[in-house]
Amino acid sequence: MLNRDWISQRIPHQGTMCLLDRVVDWSDSRIACAATSHADPANPLRAEGRLGAANGIEYAAQAMAIHGALLANADGRPRQGYLTSVRSVSLHVARLDDLPDELDVVAERLSGDGNNILYQFSLHHAGRCLLEGRAAVVLDAAAVHGEKS
Score class of each variant (00 low, 15 high):
M1C: 12
L2H: 15
R4P: 01
R4E: 15
D5G: 09
D5T: 11
D5I: 00
I7W: 01
S8M: 11
S8D: 09
Q9Y: 02
R10E: 12
I11N: 02
P12D: 12
T16W: 11
M17D: 05
M17I: 09
L20F: 06
D21C: 07
R22C: 15
R22E: 15
R22H: 14
R22P: 06
V23K: 05
V24K: 12
V24T: 12
V24N: 13
D25Q: 13
S27Y: 00
S29C: 12
R30E: 15
I31A: 08
A32G: 12
A32W: 07
A32E: 15
C33S: 08
C33V: 12
C33P: 09
A34V: 10
T36Q: 15
T36S: 14
A39P: 02
A39M: 06
D40M: 06
A42S: 15
A42T: 10
A42F: 09
N43W: 03
N43R: 08
P44D: 10
P44A: 03
P44L: 13
L45S: 07
L45F: 15
A47I: 10
A47W: 11
E48A: 14
G49C: 10
G49A: 09
L51T: 13
A54G: 08
G56P: 00
I57Y: 02
E58P: 05
A60T: 02
A61F: 14
A61K: 07
I66A: 08
H67G: 04
G68M: 03
A69H: 03
A69Q: 03
L71S: 08
A72T: 01
N73V: 08
A74N: 13
G76M: 13
R77F: 09
P78E: 02
Y82S: 06
Y82N: 09
L83I: 07
L83H: 07
L83P: 01
L83N: 03
T84P: 04
S85R: 12
R87L: 12
S88M: 14
A94I: 01
L96Q: 03
D98E: 10
P100R: 09
D101C: 00
D101N: 08
D101A: 10
D101P: 06
E102S: 10
V105C: 01
V105T: 04
A107N: 05
A107Q: 03
E108Y: 06
R109D: 10
L110M: 14
S111P: 00
S111G: 08
G112C: 01
G112T: 07
G114T: 06
G114C: 06
Q120N: 07
F121W: 02
F121S: 04
S122N: 09
S122C: 09
L123P: 02
A126E: 08
G127K: 02
G127W: 04
R128S: 10
C129N: 11
L131T: 01
L131F: 05
G133A: 04
A135P: 01
A135Y: 00
A136Y: 09
V137P: 03
V138Q: 04
L139V: 10
L139D: 02
A141E: 14
A142Q: 15
A143P: 02
V144M: 15
E147S: 11
K148D: 15
